[in-house]
Structures are given as C-alpha cells and as structure tokens.
Design a protein around this nucleic acid. Sequence first.
DNA 1: AGTATTTTGCAACAAAGTTGCATTCTACAG
DNA 2: CTGTAGAATGCAACTTTGTTGCAAAATACT
Lengths: 139, 139
Amino acid sequence: MVNQAESILKSSALSITSSRKKILDVFLSASTALAHQDIEKLADQYDRVTIYRTLQTFLDRGIIHTIPTTDNTIKYALCSDDCISSGHHHDNHVHFLCDQCGRTLCLDDVMIPAITLPNGYSMKEINMVVNGICKLCRA
Amino acid sequence: MVNQAESILKSSALSITSSRKKILDVFLSASTALAHQDIEKLADQYDRVTIYRTLQTFLDRGIIHTIPTTDNTIKYALCSDDCISSGHHHDNHVHFLCDQCGRTLCLDDVMIPAITLPNGYSMKEINMVVNGICKLCRA
DNA sequence: AGTATTTTGCAACAAAGTTGCATTCTACAG
DNA sequence: CTGTAGAATGCAACTTTGTTGCAAAATACT
C-alpha cells in the first residue's frame, strides 16, 4: 500500500517533499483540528516559515480548510473526501470548540442548516462554530 | 440630549474618559464590524495599548462582541440592545463577511437556526458566519 | 478643591507572520 | 543513471500584533 500522504500530494499535483509528507501525517494522525503552533511542535524538525508556506499551499489546493474560532486562533483541518472531490470547496458540517481542553472537532454528523439571506446577498461559504464542553471533558 | 456614548458608559458603570467615548463613537458611526486595526486608525490619537484595554473592558461588560472570521482577524461589533439587556450575553444573529469589500455585517434579521449536538456535548455559544458578496458590492 | 482610585501612555518585551535570497531538493528529459 | 530547470526549504532580518509593569495623568467623589 502506498503512503496515504504521498497519494494526497500526487492527486493535488504537488511535488513530494519530506516536510509536506510530515505535515500531512500530522493531520492524518490528529483527531482534532490543529493550530499553527500545534503543527510547529509536532513537526519541529522543519522551519517555521516552511510550515507557514506548506499550510498556505495545502489551503490553496483545498487539502485543508480553516475553521474560524472565537479566540483569534486559526485552526486547520483536513478536508473530508467529498469536500476535496467536489471541485468547489464546501465544508458543510458544524465545528465544535471545547472551552475546557481547547480542542476543535469536526462534527461530521451535524450538518449546517440552510438559512435565507436578505435580498442582494450571495453566499459562497458558511461556517458554524459551537463553543462548549466536549464529550471527553464531560465524561 | 445626552451623548449616546456617555449613556452607554454610565449604564455599564464605567468611568467616562475621552478614549472610551471616542472608541464608542467610532462603533456608533460605523455601519460594519471593526477590526482592531480599523479602530487604531479611526482613533489614532490614542495609544495602541489603550485601545486593546478598552476593547477588553467593553467585551467584559458586554458592550461589544467578537465575530470570528476565516481570515484570522477578530472583528468587534456593538451589541444590540436586547443582547446587552438580557444579562447573559447571547448573540444569536448571523454575521456576513463580504469577500469583495471586506466588511463584516450583522444580519440582525437572520437568526441562527437551532441544531442538535451529539450526545455528551454541551453548547455555550454558537456562531454562524457567511462569506460571500454583500448587497452594496453587487449593486 | 483635595484625594483615593482608575485609566492612560510609554517602554520594553514576546509572539506571530512575512519577505528576499542563497542553498538544496525534486521531477523529468535524455 | 546523470544533468538540469524549476520548485521548495532554511536562514536572517524584519514587520505586525499583542502583553506587561510602572509612573504620570485623569476621573469620581467627598
């Protein structure tokens, strides 16, 4: 079996480098969305600048997406398959930000409900972020 | 008629200072949510630190609220009357971020629909942000 | 007006993000 | 398999953003 990170890079027509593979592996083995800082720690053999540039590349190709948070940190998460394959990026599930452990989770089963915008507005992307206490912290 | 900024400060039991009045005036005359940077420019006679501290004070008192955005900037907006008066802060309308002019608008008429979280999760706050093109940019 | 308390501005610092450029690596042709 | 063009990386320097301590100034209240 081919390395999963490599096949993602190949299907995005990106050259295969060790930093890209490492950063993808970090995402693949993470259960939550990651801040830049998390990635820096988990891939600390690479330069800060490289991580910035790699994340930007992945964003451009739609390999990852950002999740807006109330605490002024951007979190990054891998796009799910259908989100990548649909050509035009859409990320239609709710994100959950735990106030206790700080983790950001994709609630893949909770769809964002449709809303009606006032006349004259057009929608390109929609984000729904819930703050609260997650399953693990309550247990 | 008493100055609107002063009456807001009085009802929040804050002392009346020129910087607080100025920053409130900036919000009152703005039609959109503002980033820290915007406020710095519009109230440039005051120190950066004062603006940070004043915004924090206003947040603590529920005079303003933050809007998470996908571009890693925090935007601030005045709370509407019912959002202030309800004691416990809740900001239940949708926010709109225009990709063209960059403005962030409160869509006061569009309520955030209710969602059901998976078992074990508790909700404290919910945010819904729509990206797209606003009324003015389409016109 | 006088004074306790709060707020402000300054300076210094810490953290986050960006840019230019020389070096290294990857993909690919031959 | 080797050479090479183009892409990616690391480093250094820098800008921007946010924080903290403290002395000076302003506010609220007697």
